[in-house]
Structure formats: structure tokens, C-alpha cells
Design a protein around this nucleic acid. Structure first.
Length: 143
RNA sequence: UGGAGCGGGUGCAUGAUCGCCGGUUUCCCCGGAAACCGGAGGAAAGUCCGAACUCCAUAGGGCAGGGUGGUUCGUAACGCGAACUGGGGGCGACCCCAAGGAAAGUGCCACAGAAAACAAACCGCCCCGCUACGGCGGGGUAAGGGUGAAAAGGUGAGGUAAGAGCUCACCGCUUUCGUGGCGACACGGAAGGCAUGGUAAACCCCACCCGGAGCAAGACCAAAUAGGGAAACGUUCGAGGGCUGCCCGUCCGAUGUUUCCGGGUAGGUCGCACGAGGUGCCGGGCGACCGGCAUCCCAGAGAAAUGAUCAUGGCCCCGUACGGGGAACAGAAUUCGGCUUACAACCCGCUCCAAAAU
RNA sequence: GGGUCGUUAACUCAGUCGGUAGAGUAUCUGCCUUUUAAGCAGAGAGUCGUUGGUUCGAGUCCAACACGACCCA
């Protein structure tokens, strides 16, 4: 039985980490949320949570906590589908991007929604837009 | 019992399991592990005020600008609070009020109306003259009609050709005197015969207050771009800059200053949580609040921790039982004192009105 | 966290000193034209972000609230 501890080192923290995942990750779109996957060099899975468009700070924090609680118990959900090939010694960065209108209000409901979405096909990474993202070049050299 | 007014309080509790953040101690001494302790609010919110704190060399004088507006207290301070005064509302308990000045000045008062402010007279009323009996002219008057949000004291009586503070009584107003009160003001007397329409959340006047920014303030340490390009001005005859918007004044100022272009931004530590602090008791005060003694240490910073599940017990709703459902507003970011706004359900105390039903 | 500003017709904006809210674009109708566009004539439409207050009377003055935008190191 794996440990259920989830220290902060297993979370995405910095803006550039999120930017890297958004720019190159595989996207799965659900109802008012999406999952974005990208392999990292850290050696373990990491979680990022982004809540957008929810005005109440209480609801915003609650969504983050519920998502973190779900991830703590079902860290292996990344392996459920065989879409993403995980090389040994590599982890996955997952960003849970939630928009306003997201309904689930407990870890169980999140699990249902995630299982539903994981059965779909992922979207390929979006090509970088012309105007934006002056950090794209630097990021690509790194990886 | 019902309705109502005021003041205050609570904002599910306990346990288990799995987690998160901070601190202390111990063990290994890179970094981790274990134990123990602590971990959202009455509004943490809006950012509407006031401060503490920090920087602007010291913050100087004047003008401009902004704020407050009954009085007296309270407070570190306030635009906040308390008590009282005045005005308004309610049968009442009680509630509401940006509540100085319109006899310093200026402006405005649309439409309607004769007239919107040094008064004036449309319909009227009364007197005189003329008359073709329809009225016309001259004068008096402001009680009545009409207009308007507002029409130059109100009501009643006397008086008169008709009327009018023309005269009188009461009320109001103005001036003045006395008494009481720290004071706002109140009460009483006398005089004047009415002069002073409204608007200052219009300009303004008066009194009092205010330097500017804000913890992304700022201090220290480390590293890097960078010896980059262009333009303008200047080197004691002073460019330019700081001190609030302006002026005065004053300070800084030399291989320099300013502006533009280009480049860079993922630093660390402190500030930073012991404070105008909380709780309890005693004392002073009508009260806001103040003083003394005892006691406690009570969240903290990284895009940011305080969570999830289950059980039991309360509470509310549906329901014959079993059972089912619900629990508001809302999340600390430098810290305090207020204000304002949001808020399910319930509890406690005091008070007012009505008296019904069984 | 702190600071600054805005909200008026479907859209973009005026509205000076408080007195019946306007312009352009768009829409609709008619004329003109073979038709369209253009042009000409006319019409429709607004809780002035919301709620209170001051005033005889608020788009305008004052206060609270809501929504939106921008700035900082």
C-alpha cells in the first residue's frame, strides 16, 4: 500500500511550471474542467490545480482542497488509460484546470467525473500561437 | 398568549482514520524522522475614515485644494462612540436627523401665474365721473378667487366706502433684560407692530482639522545585465533634480543629469506578530470609557496551510413508526480602532401596547 | 495587498450652471433605381448600473452598494 501523504513538493508551485504544461501537455476536456498531462524529469507524479472564474474565495479554496483530496487517494489514476506512455524514472505533471460552473462537491464525485473523462481520447498539444509566449523557445531548449 | 421596541450572545459538539501548515524538543547532522503544542471571522469582506510603522535631507512660510459642521465628554486618533439640547415620527416602549451662517455678497427658482422678491394687481371688492346702460375712465384696497412646490405673519374680534397690524387678544417672529445650566439651550418679563420667501448635499462666509506616498512602504545581503545605443543640456555666469499642485525659500549637484530605444527580472533575510492585546476580579463614571491587581501567549506567508471520510449525540423540517432531508453569510496576507454591507437558525435580559381564546 | 477610473438606445459616445434625455452607426417603412449599394424622407427604442437622501424637481448634487477596466515590484 503506497503512502497517502501529499507534501507540497508533489505540487506544482511556480507559474513557469504551469506554463510549460499548458504549452506542451496533452489535454482531456470534461464538463467545465480539463486535465493536462506532461512528462517531467522529477521522477514522481505532480499535481497542479487551477481554478478560474470562481468568485467566492470559499468555493475556490474548497474546489482546490477536494481535488487535492481526490488526488491523494487516487494518485495512480494517471495509469488508468494507456494513452500516455510513461518511461521509467519519469513522472507526470497533471494540471487540473477548473472553470466556473464545475458541479462536483466531494472527492467521490470528482472520481466519477475523472473516470468518465479518462475514457476519451486526448487532444494533441496546441501549436504555440504567433503573438504570445516569448518564453516558448527557452522552454523548448530545456526539454 | 399575541404583536412590537431596545440591548447582548451563539454561529453545531465529541470521537476515530487518512492528510496539510507553523513552532518547540529529541535523534541522525545533506536533509529528514518521531513526540508534543498551536492553526480563520463576526464580519477575516467592501477599502469608506482614523492611526501605528516606513521612506521622501529638516519639513519652513504663503496661496490653492480637501475634510468636518448642535453642545459637552470619551479616545492614540477619527468623518467613530456616549450623554444631553433642538427638530421630526409613533397610542407607547422607542426611533430618525450632514442639525453653523440666507438681516457679507453673488447665482438660481423651469412651466404656470398679474407678480418669484427695492414688489406688484389678472378676476374681484369699494368710491367718484361719464354712459349709447353692453360698459368705459380715474382713484382706493389686498379680505376673497385663480396659478404654483412656494405669493410677504396665522386665528378670532373690532374697525371701514371696501379693506389693511389700522387697532386689540392669543400664537409665531425680531430686539432686549433677568434667572438656571460648563455649554447647546430652556424658562420668565418688557418692547417693537412684522421688517427677514426658498435654496449653502449652488458658489460662498465662519470655526476647527489636514505635508506626500504607501509593507508591491522600506532596510540589509548576494548575484547579474553593463564599459549598450541615440538625443538634449551643462561644468561654478550652474544644466537638472528633491522638498505636495503653484510661488517664495531652501538643499543636493560635475568625465554629470534628463528623456527615448534596446536588454534583464524565478533571488534570499528582515520588516512579521507581545499588541493603544485577550480573559477574570475589584474600584470610579448616568454612559462611552478609565484605573488597579492577577493571569494567558493566541494562525501566519511558498500563489499562499486550517481539509476529507465515517460514527455518535444535540437542533430544525417532512413523517403513524421505520426512515428521509437540512444547517446561513462567508476564508487571515503589515498591524490595530471604527464605519458600512452580507447573514440560516436559536438563546438571554429589559421594556411597551392590546386584551382575546381555552 | 494597495491605488486610480468608468457605467446613458442593439453598438460607439454627447449631455455646459439641477427644469420634458440627444448625435452617429445599425434596424424598420416609404421614395429613387432594372436590382443592390449610395442618396433623400420618416419611424420605432431608454428602470440614465442599483438603492436611499438633499431639493418644488435629480442623468446631473451627496452617500452606500453592484459590476467592469487599468496601474504598482
Amino acid at each position: 500500500m503506497p503512502s497517502l501523504a501529499l507534501p507540497k513538493s508533489s505540487l506544482l508551485r511556480q507559474p513557469w511550471e504551469y506554463r510549460r504544461v499548458y504549452a506542451q501537455g496533452l489535454r482531456l476536456r470534461g464538463d467545465h474542467f480539463s486535465l493536462i498531462f506532461l512528462a517531467n524529469q522529477v521522477g514522481e507524479h505532480r499535481l497542479g490545480i487551477s481554478v478560474h472564474g470562481v468568485k467566492s474565495a470559499v468555493r475556490r479554496n474548497r474546489l482546490k482542497r477536494i481535488v487535492r483530496e481526490f488526488y491523494r487517494h487516487h494518485r495512480s489514476f494517471i495509469d488508468w488509460c494507456g494513452i500516455v506512455a510513461i518511461p521509467p524514472g519519469t513522472g507526470m505533471d497533471v494540471v487540473f484546470a477548473i472553470r466556473s460552473g464545475f458541479a462536483p462537491n466531494s472527492p467521490q464525485e470528482i472520481e466519477q467525473v475523472v473516470r468518465q473523462v479518462m475514457s476519451k481520447r486526448p487532444h494533441p498539444p496546441q501549436p504555440p500561437r504567433k503573438g504570445g509566449g516569448r518564453n516558448d523557445n527557452a522552454e523548448r531548449k530545456k526539454s
